[in-house]
Write a protein that binds this DNA or RNA. Structure first.
Lengths: 230, 230
DNA sequence: ATAATATTAATTGTAATACAAATAGCATGG
DNA sequence: CCATGCTATTTGTATTACAATTAATATTAT
């Protein structure tokens, strides 16, 4: 189906990569598991080791595999920063507007809120509150601003992971890498404090199962964070 | 910043990829433009041609580059189907529950609705109505069911692309690859007709700028489509 | 002279080989 | 028991050679 587009000559290199992907799926390899040595794969696939390496390298480039001598090649955890490097590279000449990224992020986070409301355990609630506390900004020094930005990302990541939906979490972490590049937005101490307050309100709203309030807060929070237009 | 994680030994292969990306950026290459021959790049980077090829291969896998003998290697347009294949593979070995896929899709489509409400031009409105008409199911033969399924995807794709947000569109097309695999859900003629009716109601709701109604319809539509639990 | 056809050359695709680099595991010695 | 060095295994890189493909050119027939 997917291969139907270029039916002409798909080439052996392409085929090798397909074989490799199939191999991983069929053997049920999981992240952290080790692949057979390149030589073995080459024999098994009936291609040269160079071809196997090229196939492997393509996947390594994407962060799907990591390999070190003697230890072999292992299946890596999903690394969205790699993917985003590729994406951001594309965006270098196709200028993705920040607006659209924000809209997408809002959609993700609103969807997450709905999942989170109603199944917020006390345990998670406490951890969220702690995250808010940790994130509090005490002054407006550059290092503190930097830390505050990091904590903000951490808070939103925690929200997403608490929602228990890995798909949304994946999308979000993908978007996060973009927003990290947008840092440098100068913010006043007032603004950071307001953001902290919004975080807390958000957690409480979720805890109170007040989805509408939570949604409104999230809208305002995201808009305020990156547009600074109240 | 991104490279700061593995400061140990980044290796030449990694370096070659960086060089390649920098080269493309610095020379201001645009989609359709041609890269220098592999040999030239190898000399320029001070590595072997095999290394250059391995670096190129990762980008080719994502469809970022296409190369044919004699014509050389050219920068391609963004190919989300390739990207989707990569991501869907990643998600494949993370055993994604259908539930989470549905939740994610709902989030995306609800976010899209909000963008669409309020800026639905007459032109787009007409095209959406046509899409609904085209999608109508006339009987419950297998081929007609198949066609109906395709039209359903097409309708949602059209909605997404009408929203004008390429990020959401990309996420959606990624999810679509999963839902295509879930086909085979037996549906009655009644159900398909209800789905068609919902499509129409949805379009009208958006046209009337009735976001709440649209959201409700979308919830019901997606839930009904894949759970068949009314 | 023009169109079809054959030739040539440039470029990517694949393979085989050799050696370097890194490292896990073992052995050896204190 | 711990530290140190040795060894074997596996990946990393380079070199070379040739096959496959096709753009560009030359040739030939009409």
């Amino acid at each position: 189906m997917t291969a139907g587009k270029k039916t002409k000559k798909n080439g052996k290199g392409w085929q090798t990569q397909q074989l490799l992907l199939e191999f991983i799926l069929e053997t049920g390899l999981r992240p952290g598991d080790r692949l057979p040595p390149e030589e073995t794969l080459a024999v098994q696939f009936g291609v040269s080791r160079v071809s196997v390496r090229e196939a492997l390298h393509g996947l390594k480039f994407l962060g799907m595999l990591t390999s070190t001598p003697r230890r072999g090649t292992i299946l890596a955890e999903i690394d969205f920063s790699r993917l985003s490097r590729y994406l951001s590279f594309q965006l270098a000449y196709s200028a993705m507007p920040v607006q659209e990224l924000l809209e997408a992020r809002l959609a993700i986070e609103l969807g997450m809120l709905e999942l989170l409301c109603g199944k917020l355990t006390d345990d998670v609630y406490q951890r969220l509150r702690e995250a808010v506390e940790n994130g509090r900004c005490v002054d407006d020094s550059p290092t503190e601003q930097e830390r505050h930005g990091q904590e903000d990302f951490a808070f939103h990541r925690l929200l997403l992971s608490s929602s228990g939906n890995v798909v949304l979490e994946a999308f979000s972490s993908l978007l996060e890498t973009f927003f990290r590049r947008l840092k440098g937005n100068p913010v006043t101490l007032d603004e950071t404090r307001r953001a902290d307050a919004e975080h807390l309100q958000l957690v409480e709203a979720i805890h109170d199962n007040n989805i509408d309030l939570a949604r409104g807060l999230m809208r305002r929070h995201l808009a305020g964070r990156y547009f600074s237009l109240g």
